[in-house]
Amino acid sequence: MTKIDYIQSDGTRITVDAAPGDTVMSAAIAADVDGIVGECGGNMMCATCHVYVDEAPAARLPAMTDDEDQMLACTEAPRTALSRLGCQLPTDEPMVVTVPGIPT
């Protein structure tokens, strides 16, 4: 079990125990974290798993693929240098991510 912290736009922090094989997206879905929709189940088609990675062992984050880069152009909340698709981030290491406040 690895601890993943999700910080909501209102500042609430939710700590989730990710199971082996989980991604930042799937751990959030299993724990019902608001704001991470994961509509396409990790197929890199929806960008509804967008997160800002605040704290992570940067060297160990997987490099961004071209497909992830293209999808990050389609996020609802603004893309920043910290933006990643949660479904592309493994949970082998503890991580702190901010969940974008999605305009509804």
């Binding site: 396409c40 189940g41 990790g42 197929n43 509804t104």
Partner: peptide, 16 residues
């Protein structure tokens, strides 16, 4: 607004 329908389903088989 916020029209996240399921016509293409959701999850791993989400309409390609």
């Amino acid at each position: 607004a916020n029209n996240r329908h399921l016509a293409f389903t959701a999850g791993g088989h989400y309409c390609i």
